[in-house]
Each structure stands twice: as structure tokens, then as C-alpha cells.
Simulated scan of single mutants.
Amino acid sequence: MKNIVDYYPDKYCADGVNCVAAGVYEFEGLYFTSLSFEQEPEFGEHDDASDISQHPLEDILHKFNVYVQDYYEYDVYFGSKVCHLEFASQDIENIKALRGIIGKHVYCNNDGELVIE
């Protein structure tokens, strides 16, 4: 994954959704953030945003104890390289920690280990 940046969907403007930290939102005790990124086929990831690779995504979910809350399929255009995902957790600290990957390069090395640099 590369070019990891914030993504702000319109649904974050809905009644009851509160911005509780930079890029972190809360609704009824659930904390969430959305990110955009590009996959890297040269690291074994898929080529198209309509098919997000299991790794490093699963490794990220496990490391930060978050889950995918929403996949913005309506924002993915045929042949697009840019993926959009909403990540959620009951613990705000998990979401804040996840946001540490913004601007970083995230991939699995040859040993299958998650690398964030």
C-alpha cells in the first residue's frame, strides 16, 4: 500500500456523527476513520481497487485491532487504482494508532511480515 491519505466521505456530515480527533469520528460509541490508498502489484497486491488484496490489509487489521466497517464501492471506478476503506473499533486509541500509517509505505516482506516505513 502506498499513497495512504485521509478520505472524508459525505456520510461523516450526518446527524450524530462527531469528529473527536483529527480524522477520527464517533457514532454511538463506535470510532472510525477512512483512508485512501493504492495497492502495489509489485508487492503481490492486486492491480485494481475493486479487488483489495488480503495482505497487507489483514495484517493491518490484526496489528491495530480494527476492522473494515465500510468499503466505498460506489467511489471505485472501473480500472481505478485508488481504494477507499473505513476502519472501525470500539477503542479510539486503536483508530489513532492506525492513522499512524498515513503517508507511510505498508507491505508484507518476503517472509510475510508486515512492514511500515
Rank of each mutant, 00 (worst) to 15 (best):
I101W: 03
C83G: 01
Q69I: 00
E38G: 06
Y31T: 07
V68T: 03
A49F: 04
C108A: 06
C13M: 14
F64G: 07
Y107L: 10
E45H: 07
Y25D: 07
Y12A: 05
N18L: 15
V82L: 12
Y67T: 02
S50E: 12
D111Q: 14
E40M: 15
H55V: 12
H62M: 10
D70Y: 09
F87V: 06
V76R: 09
A22W: 05
Q54Y: 13
E28G: 04
G79F: 03
G23V: 07
N65T: 10
Y25C: 06
S50V: 08
H105V: 09
I92W: 00
I95D: 06
V82Q: 07
K2V: 12
N94G: 08
V115G: 03
A21F: 06
Q90K: 13
Q54F: 11
G112S: 09
Q39F: 04
N109L: 09
F37T: 00
L57V: 11
F43R: 11
S80N: 10
L35G: 07
P41S: 15
E45D: 08
M1A: 07
I92Y: 02
E26Y: 04
H55R: 12
V82A: 04
F64T: 08
R99G: 01
I4G: 00
E86Q: 14
N65I: 06
V68Q: 00
T33E: 01
D75A: 15
D6Q: 14
F43N: 13
N18E: 15
S89M: 06
I95S: 04
S50N: 14
K81R: 14
N65L: 05
K63Y: 03
H62Q: 10
E113P: 02
L30E: 14
A97I: 05
V5Y: 04
A97P: 03
E113W: 04
K96Y: 01
Y7T: 03
Y31W: 09
V106M: 01
E28R: 12
D70F: 05
